[in-house]
Design a protein around this nucleic acid. Structure first.
Length: 375
RNA sequence: GCGCCCUUGGUGAAGUGGUUAACACGCUAGUUUGUGGCACUAGUAUGCAAGAGUUCGAUUCUCUUAGGACGCC
């Protein structure tokens, strides 16, 4: 079967939605945060630990797995779930974003047929097309595959964005045509930058093609203004069907997740919890903290008193700061566990607030405290 | 005892008679949004062993003292 969305309710005062996703690997509630496991692993965190923090769907990456170890090997190993020992659902990104981010400031050649660019590993010439991306994702056997899209920079002008939106639509059609995995859903991606008519056009035309779910893409790129991101969501959502999952790609930070939920987004993914963990930082109810800071040298309290994760139940800031200082890999692992738990707990509370029709109060209360110390 | 060389920040060190003493590490702080696997950005010596002298001006030249390396008796 294909991953299926069920809308349970829409919050009374906003567009926030409570729902479930049924997959071959279990049924999960939305809104949901998906940890990122680019190379068939959420960096530093084992599948058992992911389960413990309440992870549902995780994200992995077509581009990276294409290069290493290769889709054929993963297929021979029984597909991505079996290969990485993760028995929950998996969404694979199409590689469209990597073309944008890896080849940033480098030579890349976007043609109608596909994208020519160079491997970040050995520099060999690569050619990725919509068909190739879908074929790889079919072999990986993820539960949700993403269409191969073009992800333009935030600074792109109207003409560029318009052409890009149209090309992404043609690529979406080509991808859908070759998609052949009967257990895999295929999602379309809405583009169009912060421009209302482009977002509207992109959303309507993508829905016309007909996908199992829809993503709002091209946000949270580089120096994109937060307001532009919120506009992009607002301009896209009204044209997406109620009965399909809505995915905001690459987001994010607690504030952006809350904003997204209120605007009608169901699922999110972001590298932030694991990346900042590897760089020594942690989410807390009172904002982000940097465990590098000398002030934690003798702090015997947990990262977050109110957190129920393994890290907070067993370790002090003093100890984690020490691990961060001496660059022990356990630091990244403990912080990743905590940071992922933090965002997942946030979505748990968001669901509760939607049930109680008080998401706006919850959001305000959360952000008041979270942002009190910064800005 | 004699000869010769050396002494620059928390560390390893570069360097010059004259604007802000290079660089690296460390330390301090910040950044990170569909992850190029541990990154990036910024700050960090009012002082060049101590004292005296030469000079318009010395960390850079001279002398004395202290500490250290090496060689010889």
């Amino acid at each position: 079967m294909i991953a299926k969305y069920n809308l349970i309710k829409t919050e009374k005062n906003t567009k926030a939605r409570l729902g479930t996703v049924e997959t071959n690997y279990g049924t999960y509630e939305t809104p949901m945060f998906m940890p990122v496991g680019t190379r068939a692993t959420v960096k530093g965190v084992s599948p058992e630990e992911l389960k413990d923090v309440g992870s549902g769907i995780i994200l992995s990456n077509t581009y990276h797995l294409w290069l290493r170890p290769g889709p054929d090997l993963i297929e021979r190993c029984g597909g991505l779930h079996s290969f990485m020992h993760w028995d929950g659902p998996i969404l694979t990104d199409s590689g469209g974003y990597q073309v944008f981010s890896l080849a940033k400031n480098k030579k890349k050649d976007i043609t109608e047929e596909g994208v020519h660019f160079k491997s970040h590993i050995d520099g060999q010439k690569l050619f990725l097309t919509p068909e190739k991306s879908i074929e790889i994702q079919n072999k990986l056997d993820s539960d949700i595959a993403m269409s191969f899209d073009e992800c333009p920079p935030a600074s792109a002008d109207y003409e560029y964005l318009k052409n890009s939106v149209e090309r992404t639509l043609r690529w979406a059609k080509r991808g859908k045509k070759v998609h052949s995995n009967k257990n895999q859903a295929l999602f379309g991606i809405v583009q169009g930058g912060p421009i209302e008519d482009l977002r509207k056009f992109s959303a309507i035309e993508t829905v016309k093609i007909g996908f199992d779910g829809y993503a709002v893409g091209g946000v949270a790129n580089d120096d994109e203004d937060k307001e532009d991101m919120y506009k992009a969501i607002d301009y896209s959502i009204p044209y997406l069907p109620e009965d399909k999952l809505r995915y905001l790609m690459g987001v994010g930070e607690p504030r952006d997740i809350l904003e997204g939920v209120v605007k009608g987004i169901d699922i999110f993914d972001c590298v932030i919890p694991t990346r900042i963990a590897r760089h020594g930082q942690a989410f807390t109810r009172d904002g982000k903290i940097n465990l590098h800071n000398a002030k934690f040298k003798e702090d015997l309290t947990p990262i977050d008193n109110e957190c129920d994760c393994y890290t907070c139940k067993n370790y002090t800031k003093a100890y984690i700061r020490h691990l961060v200082s001496v660059e022990e890999s356990l630091a990244g692992r403990l912080l990743s566990i905590h940071n992922i738990r933090f965002l997942i707990k946030l979505t748990e509370e968001i669901r509760e607030a939607i049930k109680n029709d008080n998401i706006l109060e919850y959001k305000e209360q959360f952000l008041d405290r979270y942002e009190k110390n910064n800005k």
